[in-house]
Amino acid sequence: MRPTWIVGLLADGISEAVVAQAAETVSPAALAPYHRWVPPLPQEEVIRLLPGHRR
């Protein structure tokens, strides 16, 4: 269940630092193996998540 939860959070665009802390891993780098199952974010979502984004 934990890998599904981690992949779901990453797929939702949650910060790797936040997911790593919630999953009690040593660092965000420990999440690297999960990225093969995370689909890319749509371009609109990438832009929305960037700091300074204005609608």
Rank of each mutant, 00 (worst) to 15 (best):
M1L: 07
P3N: 04
P3D: 10
T4N: 10
W5H: 11
I6L: 10
I6A: 01
V7G: 01
V7K: 00
G8P: 04
G8I: 01
G8Q: 11
G8H: 11
L9Q: 15
L10F: 05
L10N: 01
L10M: 05
A11V: 02
A11I: 02
D12Y: 02
D12Q: 11
G13W: 00
G13C: 03
G13V: 00
I14Y: 12
S15A: 15
S15R: 15
S15T: 08
E16I: 00
E16C: 04
A17C: 02
A17E: 11
V18G: 01
V18F: 03
V19Y: 00
V19F: 03
A20R: 01
A20Q: 03
Q21V: 06
Q21N: 14
Q21I: 06
Q21E: 15
A22I: 09
A22T: 11
A22W: 05
A22S: 11
A23G: 05
A23F: 00
A23E: 02
E24V: 08
E24N: 14
E24Q: 15
E24W: 12
T25F: 14
V26G: 12
V26W: 08
V26K: 13
V26A: 13
S27D: 07
S27M: 01
S27A: 09
S27K: 07
S27V: 02
P28S: 07
P28F: 05
P28C: 04
P28G: 03
A29L: 11
A30Q: 08
A30G: 08
L31S: 02
L31V: 02
L31Y: 01
L31K: 00
A32K: 14
A32L: 14
A32I: 06
A32V: 12
P33H: 11
P33T: 04
Y34T: 01
H35S: 07
H35T: 12
H35C: 07
H35V: 07
W37Y: 15
W37L: 15
W37S: 14
V38K: 00
V38C: 04
V38R: 00
P39W: 09
P39T: 11
P40F: 04
P40G: 03
P40E: 00
P40R: 03
P40I: 00
P40Q: 02
L41N: 04
L41I: 01
P42M: 14
P42F: 08
P42I: 03
P42R: 10
P42T: 02
P42G: 12
Q43P: 06
Q43C: 05
Q43V: 07
E44T: 10
E44M: 09
E44P: 03
E45Q: 10
E45V: 13
E45S: 06
I47W: 05
I47N: 05
I47T: 12
I47K: 07
I47L: 11
R48L: 13
R48T: 13
L49K: 03
L50R: 15
L50D: 06
L50Y: 09
P51L: 02
P51E: 02
P51S: 04
P51T: 01
P51Y: 05
G52P: 06
G52C: 06
H53E: 09
H53D: 12
H53V: 06
H53C: 15
R54D: 13
R54H: 12
R54S: 09
R55Q: 11
R55C: 10
R55G: 09
R55T: 10
